[in-house]
């Protein structure tokens, strides 16, 4: 296995992860809610809406993060290499599947594993596995 040492950022990633964990901790302990982004957004796209205020507030916070960041520092690279067609297909798949499977990287991966939920551990293993396979196929089989 070849490690990409140039892009390896263990400390920033660990600290960023700790912040994500802190945010999830605040939301469950103070608001009594799970910081699962697909679930929070999904709750705003439903035929019958209820308890939407905290959802909108959380999403507003997420949107504001890069804006506030730019007041004090330059944003790190946020590089999207995928083309428009792939972005649309990937977005559709992510939208449907995260609702179908009741969660994404945050809800299952962070909150669920922190709760030691067997469901979330299975879900996380499933999407990690499929993510590794997809990138392998795209980059090393199809050679895109």
């Amino acid at each position: 296995m070849l490690i990409d040492w140039n892009n390896f950022t263990p400390w920033a990633s660990l600290a960023g992860g700790a912040l994500i964990g802190l945010a999830a901790s605040l939301l469950i302990l103070i608001n009594g809610r799970i910081a699962g982004i697909s679930g929070i957004i999904g709750g705003l796209i439903k035929p019958r809406l209820h308890d939407i205020d905290w959802r909108i507030a959380f999403i507003a916070g997420l949107i504001s993060a890069p804006l506030l960041w730019q007041l004090f520092a330059t944003l790190p690279d946020l590089q999207v290499d995928a083309g428009y067609g792939i972005l649309i297909i990937a977005g559709l798949i992510v939208g449907i599947s995260t609702r179908y499977g009741s969660g994404c990287t945050s809800g299952h991966g962070v909150c669920g594993i922190s709760r030691m939920s067997p469901r979330s551990i299975i879900a996380t293993l499933s999407f990690m596995f499929a993510g590794f396979v997809t990138v392998f196929v795209v980059r090393h089989v199809l050679g895109v």
């Binding site: 990937a90 299975i122 990690m128 499929a130």
Partner: peptide, 27 residues
């Protein structure tokens, strides 16, 4: 749960974007 997870992994692997970062990219 499993099919949802597998499909999500495919979408995530295609673009490298999951729901939280998608919202941050908007900002």
């Amino acid at each position: 749960l499993v099919i949802g997870g597998l499909l999500f992994g495919i979408g995530w692997g295609l673009a490298g974007i999951c729901p939280g970062p998608a919202v941050v990219l908007l900002g």
